[in-house]
């Protein structure tokens, strides 16, 4: 999301700048806007370049397919990579039905009332709760009360909770873009609410819902705090093979390497960060691609 909004801003700013006769105040304002746009971008570029310089030489096939090791040059990220993938799949499987279901309920079924506005207020508040709090909740609820242990499924459930508010909000946003006139067209044709939602509203809001979900997942893949909290392992020499098996994830592996004293592990951490960034970029790219592809099918 962040990657394409600045571009748009830049485009429109460029156009208005070419507009002659801009006042002094406007020019100053434009300068401030450019600075506000440029500084964070610069910072980001510096960070990425630094990481790439450190980690690039370490990046090879063995790094991706090796298990962690005491020797930095032998260590790889396979369990972390597989763990993250496992985690993302499970998180999506939990968060999508719950989040989209809640959004449909709030958007299509409730009528405005005190209780629904209370629910809405709470959802937007939950979106701002620090992720470590979700980690605490996950630890108490999934690891201990449900006795799932320090397992992949506990981690995924915790991340799903963390994502739910964002998924609900983006899904509601997407549902709201379906024009009211189309729902009326459905009702006038003798369709009930269920048929209207399934055959018209959901197909039309699918691009928006999907992009929202993917962007949320891209955020979750970098989450460390809640996973540390529920006790993801930091040294795993096996792949997760069931819902209840212990696991590690990319950010945890990186965190572990950074805290080692040897310089070799720091290089490993940089390489791990490159992999993580590439994954997030791929997810964001997939979101944009999906949105464009699905929306071309129906320009209204």
């Amino acid at each position: 999301m962040d990657s394409n909004t600045p571009k748009k801003q830049g485009g429109s700013l460029g156009e208005s700048q070419s507009n002659r006769g801009a006042s002094w105040a406007e020019k100053t304002f434009l300068a401030i806007c450019y600075a506000a746009l440029g500084l964070p971008l610069l910072l980001l570029v510096v960070l990425i370049v630094d990481v790439v310089i450190d980690g690039w030489p370490r990046l090879n096939w063995a790094f991706l397919t090796n298990y962690p090791s005491r020797k930095p040059e032998m260590a790889g990220i396979l369990p972390a990579l597989v763990g993250s993938a496992y985690l993302m799949l499970l998180t999506a499987a939990i968060a999508i039905p719950l989040g989209v279901g809640a959004a449909i309920y709030l958007e299509e079924y409730t009528r405005p009332s005190r209780i629904t506005s209370l629910i809405e207020l709470n959802i937007s508040n939950l979106a701002g709760v620090p992720s470590i709090i979700y980690g605490l909740l996950g630890l108490e609820l999934f690891v201990r009360a449900m006795q799932w242990g320090r397992s992949v499924v506990a981690g995924a459930a915790t991340l799903a909770l963390l994502l739910l508010p964002a998924v609900i909000m983006t899904a509601r946003e997407a549902l709201r873009t379906v024009p009211h006139s189309l729902r009326e067209a459905c009702y006038a044709l003798g369709a009930d609410r269920w048929q209207t939602i399934w055959r018209v509203v959901l197909p039309m809001s699918l691009p928006g819902i999907l992009t929202g979900v993917i962007l949320s997942l891209a955020r979750a893949i970098g989450e460390t705090a809640p996973l540390v909290m529920i006790g993801a392992l930091t040294y795993v020499a096996f792949l997760p093979n069931s819902l209840k098996s212990p696991f590690t994830a990319l950010p945890i592996q990186i965190f572990n390497w950074v805290s080692r004293p040897q310089a070799g592990f720091h290089t490993n951490a940089a390489a791990g960060i490159i992999v993580l960034l590439a994954l997030m970029l791929a997810l964001n790219g997939a979101a944009i691609w999906l949105r464009v592809r699905l929306q071309r099918r129906m320009d209204w």
């Binding site: 189309l182 006038a188 044709l189 018209v200 197909p203 039309m204 129906m298």
Partner: peptide, 13 residues
């Protein structure tokens, strides 16, 4: 009882 609305609203999908 069929109905036609002010703004044409064919289903875009």
């Amino acid at each position: 009882i069929g109905m036609v609305f002010q703004k044409a609203n064919p289903f875009p999908t």
